[in-house]
Design a protein around this nucleic acid. Sequence first.
DNA 1: CTTCGTTGCTCAATCGATGAAGCAAGAATT
DNA 2: AATTCTTGCTTCATCGATTGAGCAACGAAG
Lengths: 342, 342
Amino acid sequence: MNQDKQTRQTKKTTIYDLAELAGTSASAVSAVLNGNWKKRRISSQLADRITRLAEEQGYALNMQASLLRREKSKIIGMIVPKYDNRYFGSIVETFETMARERGLFPIITCTRRDPELEIEAARTMLSYQVEWLVATGATDPDRISDICAASGVRSLNLDLPGSRAPSVISDNFAGARELTRRVLTNCERKLGRVEPLLFVGGRGGDHNTSERVRGFRAAHAEMGLEVSENHILTCGYAPEKAEIALEALAEKEGSLTPGMFVNSTISLEGVMRWIKRSRHYDARPPVVGCFDWDPFVALLGDDIEMVRQDVPSMLNAVFDIIDQGTSKQPLIEIPPLFMGRG
Amino acid sequence: MNQDKQTRQTKKTTIYDLAELAGTSASAVSAVLNGNWKKRRISSQLADRITRLAEEQGYALNMQASLLRREKSKIIGMIVPKYDNRYFGSIVETFETMARERGLFPIITCTRRDPELEIEAARTMLSYQVEWLVATGATDPDRISDICAASGVRSLNLDLPGSRAPSVISDNFAGARELTRRVLTNCERKLGRVEPLLFVGGRGGDHNTSERVRGFRAAHAEMGLEVSENHILTCGYAPEKAEIALEALAEKEGSLTPGMFVNSTISLEGVMRWIKRSRHYDARPPVVGCFDWDPFVALLGDDIEMVRQDVPSMLNAVFDIIDQGTSKQPLIEIPPLFMGRG
DNA sequence: CTTCGTTGCTCAATCGATGAAGCAAGAATT
DNA sequence: AATTCTTGCTTCATCGATTGAGCAACGAAG
């Protein structure tokens, strides 16, 4: 039984193996290794001996067995749509760090904006006994909340709100309104006059996009500008979709607006590609605002205004709810940050 | 026991609860729910009844209990340094997809280039009974391989090689040599003459950086150009480090080379920031090559040549090893892709 | 009318860790 | 000397799912 040990083992060392080697019981080994040997009145000599043996044998706790026995799993799950932009990347990184600070084990899974995969991922996380599930930018947050509720697991929405669980999102309306104001101001400074902007990207149905469109309209209204329905291109998030939408509009209308509001860096990727390819803006580069931040976009020219969603504050709000166990408000809106130009 | 059910439950439904409700045994429930009820000769009527009940009650398998009993966990772990660039983002996304295709459950954790955290994360993954651990861009891959080997868990290195486990990396030497050639050619085209480049970013000690420096030197040598030791700035990966290094060199030498080789998009962030701030290249923009790809960098100007590491091929190689169980070669080098300009 | 085969289940051990309860031996108190 | 306390352990049930072994009931074959 312990000769595998000698010959570079096949099976893993358990507390029973250590107990045999130490000439003691598994329960003593367990008590020593999880640190409450004082409480259980194990002598420090035995504790030392066990600790040394565990180290020698390269013992690793079997979490499955431990979790099965314990009441709390300390596992916290997160579902994320993509890893292809700074926003989600920093959400994930911050989430992991803050979870670990609290002694929680974060499990993150990427669902590539696939509604089926989201549901399957949520179910899998429940099987792993997560104590909380954070659904980030989910296509159907309420479905996920329901699945969690049915298992008695608490859930939270991040980035996109739902109605059946507390939600932490950016203040999309105020952010978009301010961004639009700034782009319009830049427009005036560059061109000597203000003209209504184009809105590009996002899904028409989602909360964030509709709030941003509302902010976009509000800023135009303040300045007495009319926004044409044809100039709201909520064509989806993928870069190609933005390219196609712009191409179609240019074909239909002949000329394009001098400025635009782009709904994410991902859409901006398509917009910039199209601008470059179509040569529509060769004479005078467009005045652009982007609802999201990317370090290279910041270097792309001096006419791109960006709002940066305040990831640390959003995750502080998320973990406040988790730490407290509940939330007073069902919806928490975090003001985004303005990055200025230059 | 099943009245919690009625009153929105507190505890989770188990196969024992379902067995009681169905008037059968837990073992029948288990057989039905994990799909081998035919093998165990359960009647399809009972199977249907159990399946319906499970759905009604929102039953979710307790993975901890299931894994404890089973021999294979089907969990596969990955350690990643950062989520702040496209390269690691796409590694993670591809890894998750390919793992799921194989019925494996991927657990990914980000260690922020912190050696302590890497080790701790590896140990935690072992506790969760991972069958494989992929260490991506690890600072000390061999340490991780040893820890895994001590528990009989197989490991793999990705992006940065180690000596105690199979490694899949980019062909850094050939990639860097070709990138350098191209930048030198661009230099000639733009300026009418070739001049040695500056190498910026990366850690001097790491395999990738030293291979890239070797490729960089080889391309210079081919063209009869001498590379000054002072022009190899392996200052680390963080953007600020690149800024500081450039600032220091500019101060020391007065003028800078007309072209440069930047070792990652993260370093490029700092390089571009410094170029903009210092106004050193205002008269004539530098001719730049970057070992890594980013969509916005592609739009940044027409003088930035990029190599894109071939993430799908790299992960195919990784999963080939996992599927086969072993690797013939200890080191697999995947040629990176050239993205051309425009 | 016995024997065998088949169907459709149930029983009970097991995975590894945990912790309440218990117990033996010695020290301290009455 | 008898009792109580303390120390330092061990025993055993438990968490939920899995699975080999077993068993009852029934039909078919001999």
